[in-house]
Design a binder for these strands. Structure first.
Lengths: 194, 194
DNA sequence: GTCTATAGGTGGATAGAC
DNA sequence: GTCTATCCACCTATAGAC
């Protein structure tokens, strides 16, 4: 781990709690007081590590994207077939949902209009990362005959991301996670059928 | 119009402004003060018409769903082909997006965990209405050979709704409405191809 | 129906002691 | 690094005059 990413224990715990709060309640529905209560510290302590909520939010997304990129690298290392990679990719989102959470950036996207610019940029970065990885998998799958779809890979990648975020959003609000599995199952079938 | 739905002018204007605020900023990012400023009245006046924010929110969704049902009835009256109905249905969402807004219930779904139960019930009601209408259109389209899809109509209907909400969410957060059009275009093509 | 005035609470954020 | 104490802005909501 690089020196730049070494963080004090309280800072790490703050990020973990804040992440969970954003994913379950949304950016505008959590406060420094919520985190302080969970950690057993005061809000002044939190402001020492993260001067502003905007800064905390930015680092939150950055960390989330970095961890996500790590998971994508693991998939690339463990599987060679495009359709298997796509399945595991969907599995990443399913795991988040099963943990009772919304995708961090999906949750933040809903409040995008109220967020500071740096946070909006980080959110785009996360979506761009998804799009790039998916595009590569789709290109590979199309070439090998493993996956089937019409039009540009980029558009198909965005389509997949749209479904994942939408299915999470609706499944959570309806308290029925099986809806996510049925929708993503349909999605996978669509790309795996000639 | 039934007597029960007649509302004082200020109440009507309040609902219109509040709706726009929720759709653009989210439930937890707007206040009675925002509405009061827009209408040129005091917050006390708003509380006369809507005692609590929860009550305002509930009536907001109820009104939205009622208007939406009216639009669905219009579609049914104007078109007979299932694929044409489906196109117009997607057009309803496109219109909301083009107005710079998120679907009201999609926006609220993101904050669902922080909402009072009556509001959550109204949100479900909206999604159920979508699902029921779509299921009927899909059943009809499959019967006439106008639409093509695998599995239960209900699952396909939910799949469509998931994409619409997800595509809106991402398109808005990326400030690129054309993404919505490309994803929904792909969706329509999927159901119209044998 | 709308106002003034205000209560009671919580929000993010800071100064300065330890 | 963490604390106590505090500021000021904003929130939802209410009482009572007009």
């Amino acid at each position: 781990m690089s020196r730049a990413s070494i963080k004090a224990l309280t800072a790490q715990r703050t990020l973990a709690v804040a992440e969970q709060l954003v994913q379950t309640r949304g950016y505008n529905a959590f406060s420094y007081a919520d985190i302080a209560r969970a950690l057993g510290v005061t809000t002044a302590t939190l402001h020492y590590h993260f001067p502003t909520k905007a800064e905390l939010g930015k680092q939150l997304i950055n960390r989330y994207r970095t961890q996500f990129e790590g998971a994508l690298i693991e998939i690339d290392a463990a599987y060679s077939e495009a359709r298997e990679k796509l399945k595991r990719y969907v599995g990443l989102y399913a795991k988040v949902l099963h943990d009772g959470r919304m995708c961090l950036c999906g949750a933040l996207a809903a409040d995008a209009a109220t967020l500071p610019k740096p946070m909006r940029s980080e959110i785009r970065h996360f979506f761009d990362t998804n799009e790039a990885w998916l595009s590569a998998v789709l290109a590979d799958g199309r070439k090998s005959g493993d996956l089937h779809f019409e039009g540009p890979q980029r558009d198909a990648a965005r389509y997949i991301l749209d479904i994942l975020e939408g299915a999470m959003l609706i499944a959570r609000s309806n308290d029925d996670f099986s809806r996510f599995d049925r929708s993503t199952g349909r999605l996978l079938a669509e790309f795996m059928t000639a």
